[in-house]
Design a binder for these strands. Structure first.
Length: 259
DNA sequence: ATGGTTGACGATCAA
């Protein structure tokens, strides 16, 4: 089975790319983030015609997650819709959706960005991660994957220039500790060993062309699922403005193969 | 410190 995760930065504007991507790589399950639309706005007929079932969560233009599967899509669950403490409904919505696909429980996650370390959204990010970790502990026994945009660079190697991020989110010790907490609990990050390199490049300053990016998209697997991983790769072509139709997402998809 | 780019119920905000 082949699964993938992709922060698509608007599913409406990227639907042609998504359809081409799942066909090109014969993807069985695709987790999407930043879909940026309600389900009734999404042109999903093409994916359905290709044999995919679709589950969508999200109602605003910033967040939104989805799961697309051609190997079953059962027991769909929308997770962690709690309001942030400062009461910003836009930040609260639709950051997690789960389904069982081909016997694997898959969570598509869009961890809160945090904006700035002194912003209330940063507190919300850490709180959200703590809540996810609490729930995730009970999922370790199964064949479970938590995939998506974690908005954390776990190591200095995951940032093109650490000095430039001195006053930024994604690299602060509390964020890294939050990520490490999942690993301490027994989750395995299964993409890094097979697929080094960045997964995100900002749109401006020709960051992609100069390979000045971040590694923030990860697949965390429960022990039994991790033992099934045979490979992984980052589809950098999908981030290349010179390839495909229209502008690319600022993230590249990450693909993982399971035995 | 600022700017640069992209997307969306666009006249700014979020990333």
């Amino acid at each position: 089975m082949r699964i993938a995760t992709w922060n698509v930065n608007s599913l409406r504007s990227r639907i042609d790319r998504v359809e081409a991507f799942v066909q090109r790589h014969e993807i069985d399950v695709l987790a999407l983030q930043e879909t940026k639309a309600r389900e009734d706005q999404l042109p999903l007929m093409g994916l359905q015609a290709l044999g995919y079932d679709i589950a969508v969560a999200g109602t605003n233009q910033w967040n939104g997650v989805a799961l697309i599967s051609r190997v079953g899509l059962d027991d769909v669950e929308v997770g962690f819709p709690q309001q942030p403490p400062f009461g910003d409904p836009a930040a609260a919505e639709s950051r997690a959706i789960a389904a069982t696909c081909g016997g694997v429980r898959i969570w598509s996650l869009y961890i809160p960005n945090g904006r700035k370390p002194d912003d209330p959204h940063y507190v919300y990010k850490l709180d959200w991660l703590a809540r996810l970790r609490e729930s995730a502990d009970s999922w370790l026994d199964g064949q479970t994957a938590m995939v998506g945009d974690w908005n954390i660079c776990p190591t200095d190697d995951d940032v093109f220039d650490v000095k430039q991020f001195a006053k930024s989110t994604h690299v602060t010790p509390p964020e890294r500790a939050a990520f490490q907490g999942f690993l301490d609990d027994g989750w395995a990050e299964v993409t890094r060993a097979h697929a080094p390199g960045y997964t995100y490049w900002d749109y401006y300053r020709q960051r992609f062309e100069r390979d000045r990016g971040l590694k923030i998209d990860f697949v965390l697997a429960s022990p039994t699922l991790a033992s099934r991983v045979t490979g992984a790769f980052i589809d950098k072509d999908e981030r290349d403005p010179a390839q495909g139709t229209g502008s690319p997402s600022d993230h590249a998809p990450v693909v993982v193969d399971l035995s």
